[in-house]
């Protein structure tokens, strides 16, 4: 253990950093495994409502998302509530096609298990949400999830 003996010059030896990359790599792998990639960039502002009785969405690969809210870039797109599918603005008429494409992307066995997650801004009026629900019913996507955050404390 001569390395730890203090030399006359009292110079501190160099710290061995050769294991530092390994530590960082472990951190990196940890993050790679635990997180999922952000699928799309939001074009609409989404401030989710809060609820107490929420469930976790299992199997992210079987979830397709519909975003509803006022456009992020209000100077360019105005402030009216818009629908976003797959990273671009869409209209009500596009929803049925969207459901069909989403279904085709999944394997035959999983098609019945697709959940449609509605990420809707909390100040949106229900009219547009009702319209979307009607479109989803027509397209046969019956399983839906109203996305919501967990309420911090129990109300009352």
């Amino acid at each position: 253990m001569s390395r730890f003996k203090l030399k006359k010059g009292r110079s501190l030896g160099v710290i061995n950093t050769s294991s530092l990359p390994d530590i960082i790599f472990i951190l990196l792998f940890f993050f790679m495994v635990t997180v999922t990639m952000r699928e799309v960039t939001y074009k609409v502002k989404i401030n989710l409502p809060e609820a107490t009785q929420i469930q976790k969405l299992e199997k992210k690969s079987l979830v397709s998302y519909i975003y509803v809210g006022p456009p992020e870039n209000s100077r360019l797109y105005g402030t009216n509530t818009r629908i976003q599918l797959n990273g671009q603005f869409a209209t009500l008429g596009d929803i049925q096609e969207f459901v069909v494409t989403q279904r085709q992307q999944r394997s035959e066995a999983d098609r019945q298990k697709i959940t449609t997650s509605l990420k809707v801004n909390k100040d949106t009026r229900m009219g547009i949400v009702t319209d979307i629900k009607q479109q989803l019913r027509k397209a046969g996507a019956f399983k839906i999830n109203y996305s919501a955050h967990k309420k911090a404390k129990i109300k009352r």
Binding site: I54, Q55, A141
Partner: peptide, 24 residues
């Protein structure tokens, strides 16, 4: 690499109220 992953990923789990819509 680590910072790249930290920036591009989201940690939050999706939660919400699941309901079944009735057929048309």
């Amino acid at each position: 690499l680590l910072i790249f992953f930290l920036v591009t990923t989201t940690m939050d789990v999706d939660t919400g109220i699941t309901r079944m819509l009735p057929p048309p």
